[in-house]
Write a protein that binds this DNA or RNA. Structure first.
Length: 268
DNA sequence: ATGGCCGCCCTAGGCGGA
């Protein structure tokens, strides 16, 4: 089973490059974040005619929003709210034997201080809630679970273009990294990218729109993640690093998202 | 040198992104 995750930054605006990606990479399942539309505005027909007949969408006007589209049937669609907000940041579904959680974690604003910036406080609270959700009963047993999405944290030194310069920049601050690591540890998750491609190799999935030339300046961050439960570790890693891919070429496709898609082949 | 940008929405500047 091939799984893809992509923060698309408006699925309506970018439906053509979504179709191009699906044709090129042919994932079985695609998890989208920041669809930025209501459920009734989601390009369901276009995706269906591209072969992705099964769809689960949690959208709202303008902001955030997540979706799962699949060539295989989706079962047990589950939409959860976090931090007392109905802001469309999670959707889960079962694909075959695999339960797939798709997250869009809050970006957190500019100031990395929860007392001065309520967006940052929200982000920290959200990360704690994700850890709590999977603690113990979650991935500890034999359950085949995958967690993907734009987690808005680049945890490792080589997940950012400059560890030193980003230590006080939201997405790479120690407090966020600690909470993300706690979520991984509590849920017994495996961060597949780093399992297959250890540091010091640099891995980025996002490049700012503000760079004149994103490729030459290459000030990226690894914000998009694929985690698997222990029951899927072998399926994710048995075929080596080729199973995992960051599709950097998509950053240059017409009117690109600032995130690129990431894929993982599970050998089930 | 992080900001030189982007997309959304009660179409225009404010908000959110990261």
């Amino acid at each position: 089973m091939k799984i893809a995750t992509w923060n698309i930054n408006s699925v309506r605006l970018r439906i053509d490059i979504v179709k191009r990606f699906l044709k090129k990479e042919a994932p079985d399942v695609l998890c989208l974040q920041e669809i930025k539309c209501r459920n009734d505005q989601f390009p369901a027909k276009a995706l269906k005619s591209a072969g992705y007949e099964y769809q689960a969408v949690s959208g709202q006007p303008g902001y955030h929003g997540v979706a799962i589209v699949s060539r295989l049937p989706l079962d047990k669609v589950d939409i959860r709210n976090f931090c007392g907000k109905e802001d469309c940041r999670h959707i889960a579904a079962k694909v075959g034997a695999v339960t797939l959680h798709n997250f869009y974690i809050p970006a957190g604003g500019d100031i990395p201080d929860p007392d001065k910036n309520e967006k940052f406080a929200h982000k920290l609270e959200f990360l704690e809630a994700v850890a709590a959700m999977f603690k113990g009963a979650g991935t500890g047993a034999r359950r085949k679970q995958v967690l993907v999405g734009d987690l808005n944290v680049a945890p490792r030194e080589h997940d950012v273009w400059s560890h030193k310069q980003l230590l006080k920049v939201v997405s790479h601050t120690p407090v966020e990294v600690e909470l993300l690591d706690a979520a991984i540890a509590d849920g017994h998750w495996i961060d597949v990218a780093r399992e297959l491609i250890p540091e010091p190799e640099r891995l980025y999935t996002w490049w700012s729109y503000r760079a004149r030339d994103w490729r030459s300046s290459n000030r990226g961050r690894r914000l998009d993640h694929i985690w698997v439960s222990p029951a899927l570790k072998k399926a994710a890693t048995a075929n080596g690093p080729e199973a995992y891919a960051i599709h950097t070429d998509c950053r240059d496709w017409g009117k690109p998202s600032d995130h690129v898609p990431v894929t993982l082949k599970l050998d089930l």
